[in-house]
Amino acid sequence: MEKTKYEKIVNRHKPQEARSQNAFIAFVVGGIVGVIGQLLMEMYMKWLQIPQSEASVYMIVTLIFFATLFTALGFFDKWVNFAKCGLIIPITGFAHSMMSAGMEYKREGPISGIGSNVFKLAGSVILYGIVSAWFFGLLRLLVMGG
């Protein structure tokens, strides 16, 4: 009872400015990540002479590589704290969640530490992605015939 009352008061006095500022930062940073993706994709298409479908794979792998590397080096956490959804929603957030879970549980050993905890945060994305994709795919097969 006391706690809900307290939360209500806190919410009422939470600065509205911080929210709009957060939203603006997320928009700009997310947009920049999108532009970087497009730049990388066109660079790969030009350099390696490959179609867009293959270049997009190279682009995603590059983004994942840098997100995991920067997380391992320690400064990506600060970026995520600053940009929040601007870096969590792009594929960088997926890589960051796996890498930070791996680093956090490293001292518990390779099996019970890294092995069983790497998907602690990213697991829900994979689980709900697969279940929903399977369900919608089944619906489409049944209703529209593929």
Binding site: F27, V29, G31, C85, I88, P90, F94, V125
Partner: peptide
């Protein structure tokens, strides 16, 4: 820029105005 930014913006609005965590949103 606009599309990727817009999706991140929606995510940030959900994160700030509800009790959902980044795990829920992704």
């Amino acid at each position: 820029f606009l599309f990727c930014g817009f999706i991140c913006l929606i995510g940030q609005l959900i994160l700030d105005n509800t009790k959902l965590t980044p795990g829920h949103i992704t």
